[in-house]
Write a protein that binds this DNA or RNA. Structure first.
Length: 825
RNA sequence: GCGAGAGUGGCGGAACUGGCAGACGCGCUGGACUUAGGAUCCAGUGGGGAAACCUGUGGGGGUUCAAAUCCCCCCUCUCGCACCA
């Protein structure tokens, strides 16, 4: 009799149907408002994990919802296909990175299709294909032209035993991942992108990222790390040289009792004669655990008070930030305080706290807050913030230094001494020097025929036909750059690549004649991905978008209008991971319960931005729910099919049973709630809960006449429509089962009637002195006076009030009445 | 250390601008149907109490007719940054 819900039958059929009909191909209707929905593309590691399922389920609901709301939706997917694991696989298992990557892509694409995700595969990008990475190279050339790419010396992780450079993730506990040798730092010439050029703009624009989580915006701001201060020259006593320091606390200048210089500072070699001693400090450079200093025997003159203070070389002073030298004010900086204690240096208080009682004669720690200046010459008595201004001006006026703004943001080093990445399009000519590869010679193809040994550096170094080339300028012998680009370059513009029509990424012509597609699709309206990309990927993408804007390709500055950072998938109290052994395999889940159930559970168990606690029992609950709907429809299939609601007006159903009318109202209420929950922060969990309530209501509903059956059909249809973005397969199936035409994905999102969402009768809460004392049913919209009368006449209320005096009565419309009573009369 | 966020039943989580705490789901208890049930359906389910009622949103104080929600203090956990001068 009844047909049972069999996801294995339903899901593949509909996936085939969607694919054959090309249902999710991006439309070209210019009249519709656009919506660009994007999930962070995956690295093709082999198989998708539950984090992917969650991420893509969220994105798919949004994309499907927006389509039903009448938007022209762009919902693409691709592969972040360059990267280290492919190379590691080559070293360990002898499989070529290309083969490994493309096989993984094929498998994972199959998995995504099995999830029923509504992607426009026509626009798929794969970053390891020459058609894609040629644009990395092209952008690089453009940035060279604009002086946004440059070369400088920098340090890399080096394994002396394998004689190769290691990525940070290949350094395990300061040791090489392959041979356990201690990793050392080695200096190499590398390519950098000048993201610092955009530091100020990237910071300012943070305030416009209103559709981003505040947390992420804050992380970006902190990463850029702007600070205002001054640079001041301290003359080295007995010489004409001076050391320039940077400080943000010029109000404490009179409290400086020594000066610290970075071991990497150009002057440090001059300041200290003993190279061995200097080497000791240099070896500890940047080590957070221990602060060590070395007295140089030299003194500097504080220009503000002409005081002689000792100069130290200190391992904690970073050469990369500020000027590589600092003044030390132990009384007002904890780190300087600790250093002074360690080396027996004087501590001089120059800032007095607002409440001086908090400051004892013998300082136990530095006072770092604001206060009033003391012992600071003509500036004594000023508040710190005022003094900062005054002293900065004094320094500038007297040629002692200048006001400066500093950023923590460093330029982006993109050189990687690896094979599986985009070749950097540069050649080195003995005669002409560094020569960019001419645009017409792009792409510089990554050679396939190379050997992977894991030792002796990048395989590209051994690829003779790749390395040996001719200089584009003098035609003489030249050597190719063998470094490849950081894979973050690939992902910094892929969202723009999707905007080109099918298979036609072409920035050259987009530069010649503005490509309307790009400008019409950008920015991404909704971006969804893990919070682990809160800084790097998102910042690089913001940077690239601006570079492309300035080159003249797009008119967008901010790539992502709204950002949703979904939480992790947790099981047994920890993030799912192979090493913890707590992973749930999506293949298994889809096989056992189907993709609808998998999607439904991951959307129901927690709001998207929170961590999701995995529960096998919870999955079964989701599965049960789908079965309940299925059974509800099939149990009543003939009557539902027979019910004709073409001309049925749910707002005015005519002569209908109370139960039928209530079901219609509940349906309207649910349409409203689900719509609002999706619109408001994508709270899918409560939206699904509302649908469960409606299904429970329908299950308990007993239709007794034609109108009731119409009401039930109306309710079922709306449930299916509302549920279709979450569980697209089962809703398609049931939609046609009750006599409709496919596809439900192409139907309009239902609307509600406000009057139908209002209750006829309300349950009024009676509080006495703020405590719940009873409830009364009364018609909605009843006047306050009448509410008071009914409440006061309520037998129970009267009993409680008794002979006590009524002090006050508060009525909250449609909700409650609070009667405040006092003592006996 | 700095910055951000969160503490609600046995569990995941609800509660829009202060207005019935615990929606929905899981689990649990009882029942029905069954040869059987780990299927399905029905009922119950914060704690205490036979009940009236009392009590309850990390702890303590406050504002208010009314507080999970607002204010102050404290505790715990999670996540980011971590020598940035």
């Amino acid at each position: 009799m009844e047909e049972r819900y069999d996801h294995k039958k339903v899901e593949p059929d509909w996936q085939k149907y969607w694919s054959e009909k090309n249902l999710y191909r991006t439309g070209s209707e210019k009249s519709l408002e656009k919506f660009y929905c994007l999930e962070m593309f995956p690295y093709p590691s082999g198989k998708i994990h539950m984090g992917h399922v969650r991420n893509y389920a969220i994105g798919d609901v949004i994309a499907r919802y927006k389509r039903m709301r009448g938007y022209n939706v762009l919902h693409p997917m691709g592969w972040d296909a360059f990267g280290l694991p492919a190379e590691n696989a080559a070293i360990k298992h002898g499989v070529h990175p290309s083969k490994w990557t493309y096989e993984n892509i094929a498998y994972m694409k199959g998995q995504l299709d099995k999830l029923g995700l509504s992607y426009d595969w026509d626009r798929e990008v794969t970053t390891c294909s020459p058609e894609y990475y040629r644009w990395n190279q092209w952008f690089f050339l453009k940035m060279l032209e604009k002086d946004l790419a440059y070369r400088k010396s920098s340090y890399v992780n080096w394994c002396p035993s394998c004689a190769t450079v290691l990525a940070n993730e290949q350094v395990i506990d300061t040791k090489c991942w392959r041979c356990d040798s201690i990793v050392v730092q080695k200096e190499l010439d590398q390519w950098f992108l000048r993201i610092s050029h955009y530091a100020e703009e990237l910071l300012q624009a943070c305030d416009e990222l209103t559709g981003w989580p505040e947390k992420v915006v804050l992380m970006q701001k902190n990463w850029i790390g702007k600070s205002y201060g001054v640079e001041v020259d301290f003359r080295i006593d007995g010489t004409h040289d001076s050391i320039r320091i940077f400080t943000t606390r010029q109000d404490t200048l009179f409290g400086a009792t020594f000066l610290c210089v970075s071991p990497n500072h150009p002057l440090s070699g001059k300041l200290i004669a003993d190279k061995n001693e200097l080497q000791k400090v240099t070896a500890q450079y940047g080590k957070a655990d221990e602060k060590i200093g070395l007295f140089t025997g030299r003194y500097c003159i504080n220009p503000l008070n002409n005081e002689k203070i000792p100069v130290y070389i200190a391992n904690f002073v970073l050469m990369e930030y500020g000027t590589g030298a600092i003044m030390s004010v132990p009384a007002h900086d904890q780190r300087d305080f600790d250093f002074a204690k360690k080396y027996g240096l004087p501590i001089r208080v120059v800032i007095s706290p607002p409440d001086p009682g908090t400051m004892s004669a013998e300082l136990s720690r530095a006072y770092e807050d604001e206060g009033t200046l003391v012992d600071s010459g003509q500036f004594s008595g000023l508040a710190s913030d005022v003094a900062r201004e005054e002293i900065a001006r004094f320094i500038e006026d007297n040629g002692m230094g200048k006001k400066v703004v500093n950023y923590k943001l460093r330029d982006w080093g993109i050189s990687r001494q690896r094979y599986w990445g985009t070749p950097i399009p540069v050649v080195y000519c003995d005669k002409c020097g560094i020569m960019p590869v001419p645009e017409k010679d792009l792409p510089v193809i990554l050679p396939e025929d190379v050997k992977f040994t894991g030792t002796g550096g990048s395989p590209l170094l051994e690829a003779a036909s790749f390395v040996h080339t001719v200089c584009p300028s003098c035609n003489g012998k030249a050597r190719r750059e063998t470094d490849t680009m950081d894979t973050f370059v690939d992902s910094s513009w892929y969202f723009i690549a999707y905007c080109f029509g099918k298979g036609k990424i072409d920035f050259v012509s987009a530069l010649k004649t503005r490509n309307a597609e790009l400008d019409s699709w950008m920015p991404v309206d909704q971006y969804i991905g893990g919070v682990e990309h809160a800084v790097l990927h998102l910042l690089y993408s913001r940077f690239f978008t601006r570079v492309l804007r300035d080159i003249g390709i797009i008119n967008t500055s901010e790539p992502f209008r709204n950002l949703l950072t979904q939480g992790m998938v947790i099981k047994d109290g920890a993030k799912m991971s192979k090493s913890k052994g707590n992973v749930v395999d999506p293949d298994y889940l889809i096989d056992k319960y189907g993709s609808d159930t998998s999607r439904l559970f991951s959307l129901f168990a927690a709001p998207p931005e929170k961590d999701l606690d995995w529960s096998d029992k919870g999955v079964e609950g989701a599965y049960r729910f789908l079965n309940r709907i299925w059974n509800l429809v099939y149990r009543n299939l003939d009557r539902l099919k027979a019910a004709d609601i073409k001309s049925f007006d749910s707002r005015n159903p005519g002569n209908i049973s109370d139960a039928g009318r209530n079901l219609l109202k509940k349906t309207h209420q649910t349409v409203k709630k689900v719509t609002n929950d999706i619109e408001r922060e994508y709270h899918f969990n409560t939206a699904i809960a509302a649908l469960m309530e409606l299904v429970n209501e329908m299950t308990g509903f007993e239709a007794s006449d034609v109108r009731d059956w119409q009401a039930l059909k109306f309710s079922v249809e709306n449930t299916l429509l509302l549920l279709s973005p979450f569980t697209p397969h089962i809703t398609e199936e049931l939609w046609i089962s009750i006599g409709n035409e496919s596809s439900i994905a192409e139907k309009a999102w239902p609307s509600w009637d406000e009057d139908m969402t209002k209750k006829d009768e309300i349950e009024l809460v009676i509080q006495i002195n703020g405590k719940l004392r009873g409830k009364l049913m009364m018609p909605a919209g009843i006047p306050d006076e009448k509410v008071k009368e009914l409440a006061l006449n309520d037998i129970k209320t009267r009993g409680i009030i008794g002979r006590k005096v009524i002090k006050k009565i508060i009525v909250v419309k449609g909700k409650l009445i609070n009667i405040v009573i006092g003592e006996h009369k």
